[in-house]
Structures are given as C-alpha cells and as structure tokens.
Design a protein around this nucleic acid. Structure first.
Length: 134
DNA sequence: GCCAACGTTGGC
DNA sequence: GCCAACGTTGGC
C-alpha cells in the first residue's frame, strides 16, 4: 500500500471540512506530476492532509475512498479526481518548519518540490511524521 | 522543437 | 506583497 500527501488551503477546504463532509471529491489538480500520483492511488491507501498558506502543517490523515476518474471541473478532460474520506486528525500538527528541520525527511517529495500538490510519502517518512505528531 | 514570456503556487 | 520554482503557452 502506497502512502500519499495532499495539500489544501484551509480557506478553500480544510481537514475539518472533510471531517464534516465525511467524504469529498479531490478535484482541481492541474499539474501532471500530481495527476500521475492521483492516478496511482488505490482504495484504502492513506493520505496525509496538509494545510498550505494558512497553518503550514500536516493536520490529519485521510484515506482514498475512490480511485481516479475524470475531473468534472476540467473542461479539457485531461485531469482526474479521486475521492477521500477522513481517518483522524493528528494529535498535534506537524509543521513544515519541523519537517524541514528533520533530517529523516530531507528527501521527502513535498519538501524538495514545494509546489507539488499531491506527492508520495515513503513508509519511513510516514512513520517519522506520525512519531512527530505524538 | 526551442526558448522566452507569462501565470500559478506556495513559502516567507 | 514579494519572490522563487516551475509548468504552460506561443512565436519563430
């Protein structure tokens, strides 16, 4: 089972919104590298939920509820969406600053390529972040 | 097919 | 609000 990280601006859609909704369509991704990651997601795989712009931290864990399908919000028909559902919030958010300061996460895709909105997370990185979350 | 210009994302 | 990174567009 692969693991992932997705970014969202909490002003637009926060982890709390996902908890309230119970499930959401993860659409609007307009980057091919990110889209390839969406296409690789399998039902049941876990996803770190990161708040960009405001918070700048991983705040919760979500799970893939539905594999990739055409993004209805994309007029070109080239991009895909998935569905996510909440698993649980982290006991304490793991900030970007803390992630950058942690040597074990130096190779992490989202740390190395800041603009990537959907990225893979290795098992080791996942374990490190959960440990940091307490 | 190359490359400069431009737009978008996201951290600071 | 600024700037860096980087993807996309369009002229040639």
């Amino acid at each position: 089972m692969a693991r992932w990280l997705v970014k969202s601006e909490p002003d637009t859609y926060s982890f709390e919104d996902l908890q309230r909704d119970g499930r959401t369509t993860w659409d609007g991704v307009r980057n091919h590298a990110a889209a390839l990651n969406l296409k690789a997601m399998q039902v049941g795989e876990e996803v770190l939920f990161y708040h960009s712009q405001i918070g700048l931290a991983v705040v919760g864990i979500a799970r893939v509820a539905k594999t990739a399908f055409p993004d209805a919000s994309d007029p070109t028909g080239r991009f895909v969406a998935v569905e996510l559902e909440p698993v649980r919030p982290l006991a304490s958010p793991v900030t970007l600053a803390a992630m950058k300061a942690e040597p074990a996460l130096a190779g992490m895709a989202m740390v190395r390529q800041g603009r990537l909105s959907v990225s893979p997370v290795t098992d080791d990185e996942w374990a490190t972040i959960l440990k940091m979350a307490g």
